[in-house]
Amino acid sequence: MKVLHYVNQFFAGMGGEDAASTPPVLIPGAVGPGRGLGLEISATLACGDDYFAEHEDDALGQLLAWLDEARPDVLVCGPAFGSGRYGYACGTLAREAFRLGIVSVCGMDPQNPGVLAAQGKAYIVPTSANVAGMRDALPKMAALTVALAAGEDPSAAGPFLPRHVRRNAFAAETGADRAVELLLAKIAGDTRSEIPIPDPGRIPPGPVLDIAAATIALVTESGCVPRGNPDQLPSRHARSWHRYAIDGVASLSPEHYESVHGGFELGAASEDPNRLVPLDALRQLEASRRVGTVHGWLYTTTGNGTPVAAAALFGQAIAAELNEEGVDGVILTGT
């Protein structure tokens, strides 16, 4: 049984936040929590959480190259507990390893954004939100790893989060015949679906703000970026979001801003980017004290052909930052 283990800079013993920008490293044998798994770990992959978040393509490229070379039976990631950046790296790496045909076991809190990032491609052992759950998590992750490496039924080896992984297959009947059957059953009171019904994830609105004292952020999916698109935000199928400083910016002038969205005709937006992101109007409200403060960063992505799961991931990450920075409310503009 060949097992590789992925951890972040902290659990690799390289340091805390100060080492979060460390690029991927390959360490022979087990490190940190890997020693507690009770498995023979042939190598540990480690990467700084910030480095992974900010250079995802580079980090993945290196980590996947090592994985492809080593071809382990199982990749173990974490446990990441409630740490959003660590969990995101674990989930994303596990998902991409799946594309290489490498199965992964992760450990994290079920609310961790890494669960969404894994897109059901990993076996995720639910853990506590903090590191106190280490002792509980490791044996469960190890048992699952052993079962998967042996080709045994993983569900007998302990609990993991629902994966919702499905594959194509030919049905005995056409989609039309199945649709007729399902509809007649639904009318008769037996409602079934071939696609698991997504959790609407509806979030109740927060309390009404005292707008005159509130910090308001601008968030947009309109593809609005500084002219020249410094971070190469794509026109469709965006895989990331970006933020740009707007402290001291009175208005989004066409000389300095543009939209790279590929889903609508850009003429009017290019003439006045304020119509994508109403900074000009918000500054007037701020000056007349009808709005407290305009947050210093504009958050942007391209919402074009973006699956709900990916959009939810962007939203979670952006909301987490806004929360940390004390933002009270958001104006979210869509196109």
């Binding site: 409602t191 079934r192 997504p198 699956p307």
Partner: peptide, 21 residues
Amino acid sequence: ETDSGLFDHVEEADCIVSVGN
């Protein structure tokens, strides 16, 4: 379907036939 699942969903859509990914 696609690798990323459904592009959109409403609560009323509780009876969906999948014709593949």
